[in-house]
Design a protein around this nucleic acid. Structure first.
Lengths: 334, 334
DNA sequence: CTGAAAGCGCTAACAT
DNA sequence: ATGTTAGCGCTTTCAG
């Protein structure tokens, strides 16, 4: 059996309170006693039971982190930075994958609540706003999704996807492209997918083009989806039109690029391609992928820091939001 | 305040025991009472406190999973499959990154133990065998590392890296290469890094070549490390020698490939490259990367299933091991 | 079929 | 400075 604080107390001939005191360091314990107790701990191979501790103090020092797809490097990077600050602040992160499924997201929130998480980081959720707005007695940060009005214990950290996508359109036009393609994400479920589409489209029109100048395709934010969608598109593609495609996530853009290569077309000569996210590997694609920086470091770091500060200070959020900045990264694919 | 089982009991006019019974479904509760109780739960927005439950039943339904580097897709894939089976079996996974640091690994084990994990999945640990062999009162699976003799509650799931690496050497020789390069990983810390090096080297010699025919470089299993190491190597590289390089992880091989391209050399004409792991993206590199399949699906699935079976059945491991098979994947880089 | 009550391991107020 | 003890929320005998 696992040894408890009682066993340690007995072996060291002290009370459990004293043992607890050397553990928590909240009260003075004479050095010799402390030493004796530490020896007893060693001898018994004692590990404090954080479950019991959590129950008592009503704090778990755990943060629930959910992402839609852990195999997408964009989310992987966010996780990495979130973990870094959590670790520094002595919090543990429980990472869960929702698999792009809003049902699963809902369930995860319940799991996190039941598990006594001190806070939640919810990255790019697909849940409906109404669901997100349920009463939570712990703070939650929503990352990479536009903010909305709320009175619940929620804060937002994101970049303005509408503006950035508009800047892609602007850039296309300035480079002389006259025909456009947009691979939109799941705009019904992912608000930022919608922002990216509308930001791009609005700017195209603002520049004097019409709806007909831009074909829109819908796909998922996965490599395979980008590959398949592009493959289909190329079946009857007219090279001479020189189109510029805005593929609204890098991992999808990569898939699309591979499809273009499989068709033996040249990028950007036959078709130009821009992505969104600027994942680490985008600079190493051939040609290098023009894209929008979606700053994972700022997103992950800021979200986690904000959350932990709220937990530690017991301050409630009320819909506050921080918008991190992002910019266009020009490479050779356009 | 969060509502408890007591609040529910009071509102429904029953005892806490009855509420607990509808929660756990271990005892019959009359349908009308059960319904009344469920209504009370809803009204109070009650979520069971798994921390209290865990304390009582001495089970957390949590599995601690640690990987050296979550941004390496090889580990990401393992995580994905592990999560899939855990979820199916109603276990939660707590994922932690050790950052390739054996100190952190040790600490994580303590954290997992303290956190009342029901079991541990330890992927490619760098810890010394002696440390791994500490007394654990919960089962642990060590993944992607060769087994060793142990009497502790440990099992192993891995592929035979020595044999696979030897097959790369054999393949190089059969293809007519006569000069070789090996990028070894951190062989002091990662047993499989050593296996890969020695498997490759031994076979080279077995084929009648000498130590001088193979230059060995040491690097980390990261993209950047592969890039830098290759860049250095190419400073005085003689194209005419037609060497074949075994870069012992795909992500590192990718980095190396980029360095080769930056030098405007051709793969495989000027230098052939093979990797190890067969991460998803390796087929999409240009040229496609010849590599060894390190089957993440089998590794992740089997490890998790084995662990959960052990937890549920209360059976102890005693050093049992399962070796999954792997094979050479030939593409255009060699 | 339902209720009363003990106790999981720990912390913190209170007592000494 | 150290000890005693109640109680966190839950499950589980044991009674009724």
């Amino acid at each position: 059996m696992r040894s408890t604080i009682k066993d340690v107390a007995k072996l060291a001939n002290v009370s459990t309170a004293t043992v607890s005191n050397v553990l928590t360091k909240k009260k003075y314990v004479s050095p010799d006693l402390a030493e004796k107790i530490r020896q007893a701990m060693n001898e018994l191979n004692y590990k404090p039971n954080t479950i019991a501790r959590s129950l008592k103090v009503n704090r778990s020092f755990n943060i629930g982190l959910m992402v839609p797809d852990i195999t997408n490097p964009f989310f992987g990077e966010i996780v990495k930075y979130a973990e870094k600050v959590a670790h520094k602040e002595n919090y543990q992160i429980t990472l869960c994958n929702s698999d792009n499924d809003s049902k699963r997201e809902n369930k995860l929130i319940d799991i996190f609540l039941s598990a006594g998480m001190d806070g939640i980081i919810n990255v790019a959720p697909r849940m409906k706003q109404r669901q997100l707005n349920q009463k939570l007695n712990i703070p939650m940060i929503i990352v990479d999704r536009p903010h909305f009005q709320t009175s619940e214990n929620i804060a937002f950290v994101y970049a303005d996807n509408y503006i950035s996508s508009a800047s892609v359109a602007q850039y296309f036009v300035e480079r002389g492209y006259r025909k456009f393609i947009c691979f939109a994400g799941p705009i019904e479920d992912v608000p930022n997918a919608y922002k990216r589409l509308s930001g791009f489209l609005d700017k195209i029109k603002e520049c004097g083009f019409s709806e007909e100048d831009c074909e829109v395709y819908y796909c998922d934010f996965t490599f395979d989806s980008g590959f398949e969608t592009m493959k289909k598109l190329l079946k009857n593609y007219d090279i001479s039109e020189h189109k510029a495609a805005f593929i609204s996530s890098d991992i999808t853009a990569w898939g699309a690029i591979e499809a273009v290569k499989a068709h033996h077309l040249r990028i950007p000569e036959d078709i130009a391609i821009a992505g969104y996210d600027n994942i680490y590997f985008s600079r190493f694609l051939h040609p290098g992928l023009t894209t929008v920086e979606n700053p994972t470091k700022e997103l992950g770091t800021m979200a986690t820091q904000l959350l932990i500060d709220a937990i530690n200070s017991q301050k409630r959020f009320n819909g506050n939001y921080v918008v991190v900045s992002s910019s266009l990264i020009e490479r050779q694919s356009t």
